[in-house]
Design a protein around this nucleic acid. Structure first.
Lengths: 189, 189
DNA sequence: ATTTATATACCGGCTGGACGGTTTAGTTGC
DNA sequence: GCAACTAAACCGTCCAGCCGGTATATAAAT
């Protein structure tokens, strides 16, 4: 994953990916055009195509960054996670929820853009999800709770991503704590 | 919600909505064109525009059908649901899971198509979701469990919808039972 | 030291094709 | 005779990808 430019401040690639993500949230995944992305990123269409040789490449870049962000967040949390059962599930949910905080729509907009353009672009994500399921099944003390917690956070993410979330900050806080309780102690009375 | 044609077998409207849903799953939400839908539905473009006077109208129809299907499923289950706590949550999850069974991708493809084209088209869905949350909060014996169960099923639906689900039929069965246990008894040891 | 060459990073105009939507004129079946 | 179409042409718009240029920097050759 090395790419040409990387010296000084924010690279053009980063600026482009940011711009694309914001645009998806603003105008809809299917309306994403190279020209609009270029303008928002502050360069020309030619410059954009220099960094990403095709629209597909741009979408792939968006997906890959999403994967990398979640993975990095998970590893960052691994060091400081409190001991207890269902560690992997707690890391997964905490990482996702952290990215949910206020910017999930942008973070996940690559998914929407890729779904709109060409569902095959989601293949790398498919792989990651399959591995996550495998890990959860193998390492969780309470697999049912781990699956439920994971899926609940995915459900929340999905709502945020589509701009469908009816939840207030209090609601989100409550859900976060319920998931933690589910994973560390079960949830019964 | 009455529309011109409705006599005999499957109406053109239904055929069109089916065709559109399948196309979204096949080629991506953003690639949906009127011509392709018309061809798949077995009529001409003119005929399609006779039934849905614009592409927006078609997408609205897809969203509305999704809402109606879930709602109908819920009411159908209400009569035969076993007594116990968190009734509304159990109805929601059961209805969604029933639609998940093998055809969620088609059922929910309207969401993807609308997201791609114009996020505002999801407004009716937003309304339904807000009401669902309100009902769950007001009527659930264990609100935390109700929210978690609901979100978990939404997470599962989201994976199915995007074709990202890593779950086997056994997995789904296990999740279904875990959700039921969560809603009727809590989940702790 | 000066010229030449090569690579990076980007500009911006152009084109060919596709798509949404309209219109018109005709057809089928109840 | 009207509803529910078919068939086909047509228009305006949009957009991805291409291509010829430009500016800067570093390196190599002379």
């Amino acid at each position: 994953m090395l790419f040409p430019c990387s010296r000084g401040r924010k690279s053009s690639r980063e600026k482009i990916l940011d711009a694309a993500a914001e645009l998806v949230a603003e105008i809809g995944a299917g309306r994403l055009t190279l020209e609009a992305v270029a303008e928002k990123a502050g360069l020309s269409k030619g410059g954009l195509l220099y960094n990403f040789p095709s629209k597909e490449a741009l979408l792939q870049g968006m997906i890959q960054r999403l994967i990398d962000q979640v993975s990095a967040e998970k590893e960052a949390l691994r060091g400081q996670a409190p001991p207890g059962p269902n560690l992997e599930a707690r890391l997964c949910t905490a990482a996702l929820l952290k990215l949910c905080g206020g910017q999930m729509k942008e973070t996940a907009s690559g998914m929407l853009a890729a779904t709109a353009e060409n569902p095959k672009l989601l293949d790398p994500l498919r792989q990651v999800i399959r591995e996550t399921l495998k890990t959860l099944k193998e390492t969780s003390e309470d697999v049912d709770a781990a699956l439920l917690g994971w899926l609940a956070v995915e459900g929340l993410s999905s709502y945020e991503m589509h701009g469908l979330s009816p939840f207030s900050d209090e609601d989100r806080e409550r859900i976060l704590q319920a998931v933690n309780r589910l994973l560390s102690k079960g949830i019964a009375p």
